[in-house]
Amino acid sequence: MKQKRTTNLFWNQQQKIAPYLFIAPFYLLFVLFMGYPLISSLVMSLYEMRGFQSRIFVGIGNFTDLFGDPIFWKSLRNTAYFAAGTLTLQLPIALLLAILLNSKFVKGKNFLRLAFFAPVLVAGVFVAIIFNLVYDQRAGLVNQEFVLFGKEIGWLNEEKYVMPAVILTGVWQWAGFNMIYFLAGLQGIRQELYEAAAVDGANWWQAFIHVTLPSLRPVIAFVFVVSMIGSLQLFDLPFILTNGGEPADAGSTIVMYLYKNGFQFMRLGYAATIGWVLFFIIAVISIVQLKLLGIFRDE
């Protein structure tokens, strides 16, 4: 009798504990690899490191330094430039490609989907190396066309061309990826809505404006926010393409400046500060975007 009671107690306890044990691996890993580094970097942003062992508490000193740092502002401007270029160029192109591939008039859709999606499978480092050759001043693919007008453009050598070159590379790499989201969204729109619009006399453009775009709103919001976050975290592409952000920091981005401070200048506290400022920028922009796109609205 006593043994049976003990067994029941064991099973009761196990039933209570089991769910926590099942989810424990995730939380343990989260605390170890996300929670601890996050808290640690927040603490680090309040200190200035000196060498490998010493550090000194500076309070918000790193934050006030950062807001007076012209290279930080330049990097922020470059990052915003890239984000604006990405959102205004890449997303419409991705949507256009998705509409084309969703149309019944286009042949070889599977091949085209793969072809447009393929660039995202190439690591950013290799994309940068490939586009270094594409933008080659003497023999690059781009200048082979522009040289017909008698000018060799130093895409990666002249300040004004650096960010456009980075944006175009980003478009090549990511437009196909975003196209897949739009394509999935387009395929999820009920055909009856188009039929109803046609009955009401809507032409293709009117159907696009009044049926397609509103139906795609959640997908657009998702792609918009994810692309914006990706743009703000830009690092490898300009770092390799411009050989570290030169000339004159024209290719420098926030994350690149963070990397330089952390790893090249050994200013780990300052680098952590940049990381936290970037986090707040991303959080604010994402919330504003989602709000504007009506994602928080109850349908």
């Binding site: 001043q137 003497r138 023999a139 690059g140 050598n157």
Partner: peptide
């Protein structure tokens, strides 16, 4: 002339050398 490409070892710079530029 400024270096072609991003540094002296850039293929663009080598191309300019070969062209006699």
């Amino acid at each position: 002339t400024p270096v072609y490409g991003t540094w002296h070892g850039d293929p663009s710079n080598f191309a300019a050398m070969q062209d006699g530029k």
